[in-house]
Design a binder for these strands. Structure first.
Length: 428
RNA sequence: GUGGGUGUAGCUCAGUUGGUUAGAGUACCAGAUUGUGGCUCUGGGGGUCGUGGGUUCAAAUCCCAUCACCCACCCCA
């Protein structure tokens, strides 16, 4: 039995890899326009970083981490997300002693041990960004605006942006207590899962899909009504700014992020119609995180987009077709003795920045033409006895079948001109 | 971790109540066309029928186990 990619992982081959490149390029460009610069960190970290930075109580830490011991017995973990790594890097390099706020973006693979399904893999890819050093609600709004712009930049216009505020530790704790006081008397009316949730994370009970639970918790206290004045003002400013800038969003009382370090603004972006895993992105503010891992008391906010899910959404609305290989010129050799001449010409073309290739399987002219055609070549250059002896090449335009002789001395300008003509013709 | 569905050529799939050498389309290669692509025709290579075990004279087909994929729960990207 041949070896296959491990469960929940997969390969990205051409032509699919083109879609990934195009998508990543668009996202990076938007991040750049918003003033973000790239950070790259190791794909594995000390396990402790995630335990403390993501939170012991989260599903990620309690059951989804790829943790292993290296040869000297260190406990390491493949990163399940990148916010903790960014915070660690910030602290390690004292990056906050420079210009603030710090605005970083990242793009790369993340790892979570979970049962694969549509839109969910064990190795998956995120594009995300983090801002450290400002607690301004305008930064929250900017992040959201950038996320929306990113979706637009890759051609996704149908999305739902849900936002909520989870407050600060003090208002969240008082709310949590009030919610518990509300739930405890009716706990027996809840489904078994919710009885469990009410102990571990009571906020999750509000999110249950069981109708009996919906019924039982009617009239529950709302987090929004229990925010302290600072948190309430912050959240109001975020919403006002988004409204003023024409960003559609929906306040979602039940949006509770699973990661412990979130404070104030929390959000998720959903795209309907891509299956159960419809969240293509999520994030929020985490003012307590950096300090929690022994760094300075720096506020932060960030988000991540799931690239697999974005692609899924793009395919559902059948945009972004893969397309042929974008070969510009194919050099066809008529007799084996002129191979060297062809290699020279090929090199000249490539030196001039032209996407060019030749045959390497000793194919006959006919087969070379077929190959050129299937590779999407716009022009084919013939190199044979007449051409070499008289110092020219025959150029066939694959689109209109016109064929001309071009002197070797003026080859590059002539080819460039022909390619340009073809492009213009195709654009019309 | 729990539940349901599916595993036959690179890809999409057929394969009758168990019956001899497992097929088609497509893709790839070659020839028709000896220096010229798309269309057409002809031919070719390519399968341990997911894997292991069992039943049987005989298994792609029936039974068991296992693995993988797909979908959903949980949770999230």
């Amino acid at each position: 039995m041949p070896i296959k990619a491990p469960r929940g992982t997969y390969d990205i081959l051409p032509p699919d890899s083109r879609k990934w490149q195009a998508m990543e390029q668009s996202l990076k460009r938007v991040a750049h326009i918003y003033g973000y610069e790239e950070i790259r960190t190791p794909v594995f970290e000390h396990t402790e970083l995630f335990e403390r930075g993501v939170g012991e109580g989260t599903d990620i830490v309690s059951k989804e981490m790829y943790t292993f011991f290296d040869k000297s017995g260190r406990s390491l973990t493949l990163r399940p997300e990148m916010t903790a790594s960014c915070a660690r890097a910030l602290i390690e390099h004292s990056a906050h002693t420079g210009l603030l706020p710090l605005k970083w973006f990242y793009c790369g693979p993340m790892f979570r041990y979970d049962r694969p399904q549509s839109g969910r893999y064990r190795q998956f890819h995120q594009f995300g960004a983090e801002v450290f050093g400002s607690s301004s609600p305008l930064v929250d709004a900017e992040v959201l605006m950038m996320v929306v712009r990113m979706l637009q930049s890759i051609g996704l216009t149908e999305y739902l942006l849900h936002i909520n505020s989870v407050g600060c530790p003090s208002c969240r704790d008082s709310y949590r207590q009030e919610l518990l006081d509300f739930i405890n008397p009716i706990v027996n009316d809840l489904c078994p899962d919710c009885r469990q949730r009410s102990r571990a994370n009571p906020l999750r009970v509000l999110d249950c899909k069981e109708s009996r639970c919906h019924e039982a918790i009617k009239g529950h206290p709302r987090l929004l009504d229990h925010l302290c004045s600072g948190c309430a003002r912050h959240y109001q400013r975020v919403r006002d700014t988004l409204t003023r800038q024409g960003i559609c969003f929906e306040h979602d009382d039940r949006l509770v992020r699973g990661l412990d370090y979130y404070t104030n603004t929390a959000f998720e972006i959903h795209i309907p119609g891509i299956g159960a895993q419809s969240a293509v992105g999520g994030g929020g503010r985490y003012n307590g995180l950096v300090k929690a891992i022994e760094g300075p008391d720096l506020p932060g906010i960030g988000f991540a987009l799931g690239l697999e899910r974005l692609l899924l959404a793009l395919e559902k609305q059948d945009s972004a077709l893969p397309g042929k290989r974008d070969l510009e010129v194919f050099v066809a050799v008529m007799e084996a003795e002129y191979e060297d001449e062809a290699v020279t010409i090929l090199q000249q073309l490539r030196d001039a920045g032209i996407v060019a290739d030749k045959d390497y399987l000793e194919r006959k002219a006919r087969a070379q033409l077929k190959y050129a055609d299937k590779s999407g070549a716009a022009l084919v250059l013939f190199v044979g006895a007449d051409e070499v002896k008289q110092g020219f090449v025959t150029v066939r335009n694959m689109i209109n079948k016109e064929q001309t002789a071009i002197l070797r001395t003026g080859l590059i300008p002539a080819i460039t001109r022909l390619l340009h003509h073809n492009e213009e013709a195709q654009a019309q």
